[in-house]
Every structure is written in C-alpha cells, then in structure tokens.
C-alpha cells in the first residue's frame, strides 16, 4: 500500500487546523462579544461551507486561484506561488472550507461562560487581552479541543474541494479521499478498502479520545 496519500492527508489536516486555530480564536471572540453592525453577514459568510456543495466552493476557488484571474495572478507575481494544483492552494481552500467547524464551537464555548468571569477580571484591573488568554481560553478548553478535532476530521474527510482545485497529483495533492476514489475507479477495491479502513479507524480513535477527555473535564466540573 502506498502511504503517501495518507501522510499527505494528515499533513494537510494538521496545517489547516493549526492555521485555523490562530485565526478562529480572535474571530470567535469578536463574534461572541464584539459590538458591531452586520454581524449577520459575517456569520452567514463563515457558515456558507456548511451548506454549499463542496464543488461550488471548489469551482469558485479554482477560478480565484487560477493565474488567468487577478487574485491568482497577484499571488503568483508577489509570492511566486501557484495555488491551483498545489499543496499551498489546498491548505488555503481547506482553511476556508473548515472555517465554521473551528469558529462556531469556540464561539459557543466563549458564550457559555458566565459574563461575570469577564467582568470580575476587568474589575480586578485586567485588560481584555489578558482576560481572554488567562481567564476565557483556559475555561473553554473542551470547546477548543472539540473545534480543533472537528476541523481536523473535516479536513481529513474533504473530497470535493480538493478534487476541484488540487486534482490528483501524487505527493502534492493526492490525499487519501482522492486516492480511494481513484482506486475504486480503477476497480482496485482492495487498495481502496485499505485506505478507507485506515481513515475509518483513525477518525474513530480521534473522536473517541476527544469525547472521553471532554466527558472527564465535564465530570470534574460537575462534581462540585
């Protein structure tokens, strides 16, 4: 069995999840507590990947990334990066595609904390930033863990978007889900089965670990 697609899948999922975590923390905070107009628009845009067919997102990203259009052209000229049919392009597409899976659970976690925790920190002289990092984040660890794993798992399971903008280049864009599709197309069911089983098992184990950790965290809190 060729391990390269699996390795590529997990590299993509890890990089995507880490990048998203960095973006999603401030974004989730802003959505949870910010005072601004047009929140509905921002939320709708972030939520689009939940409901749109991946092929729609993939199609528009393909156009955007293509050097024949201004964005792709711009990126290629400034950074010398070609985003279509390349790994960096896959990462950007995955980040956009998995955005709601990271942002929504973290926002919900932040909002579920009693307002008095933030208020207490402010009256104790602590800035918003310090309150965020020292009080709010440590108290929504389960939400952050859930968000991270959902994002990771969602990226592992990505197929349509990858196929649209990444194609099927071994070692560059051929992730496990695409490899399974190829093997099935070639009627090579046993190879497809191997990839599928590995994904199946790993995904199950990850989710199992997350839910056990979260249940333990909750149990500690409720035992008061």
């Amino acid at each position: 069995m060729d391990w390269q697609p699996l390795w590529l899948t997990f590299r993509l999922a890890t990089i995507t999840s880490l990048i998203l975590l960095a973006f999603a923390l401030p974004l989730a905070y802003w959505l949870a507590f910010g005072k601004f107009r047009g929140r509905g628009i921002v939320e709708a845009v972030i939520g689009m990947p939940l409901v749109l067919p991946p092929s729609v997102i993939g199609f528009y990203l393909l156009l955007a990334f293509s050097p024949s259009y201004w964005f792709g052209d711009f990126i290629e000229r400034i950074f010398g990066l070609r985003l279509v049919f390349s790994f960096p392009g896959l990462v950007i597409a995955s980040v956009l595609y998995s955005l709601p899976f990271m942002v929504y659970p973290i926002r919900a976690g932040l909002q579920s904390l009693p307002a008095s925790l933030r208020e207490a920190s402010y009256t104790l002289g602590k800035s918003e930033r310090e309150t965020f990092f020292r009080i709010l984040l440590p108290n929504c660890k389960p939400a952050i863990l859930t968000a991270f794993v959902l994002t990771f798992a969602h990226t592992v399971g990505e197929f349509g978007v990858v196929l649209m903008i990444g194609g099927n280049i071994p070692g560059v864009t051929k992730v496990a889900s695409v490899a399974i599709y190829n093997e099935v197309e070639a009627l090579n069911y046993s190879a497809a089965n191997q990839y599928a089983l590995v994904l199946f098992a790993i995904t199950f184990v990850i989710l199992l670990i997350v839910y056990s950790i979260n249940n333990n965290l909750l149990r500690v809190r409720q035992s008061s």
Partner: peptide, 8 residues
Amino acid sequence: FQDYALFP
C-alpha cells in the same frame, strides 16, 4: 458577584 465569579 452574586454567583461569586471565581475563576474555576
């Protein structure tokens, strides 16, 4: 605070 707001 009424709910004490201790940092858990």
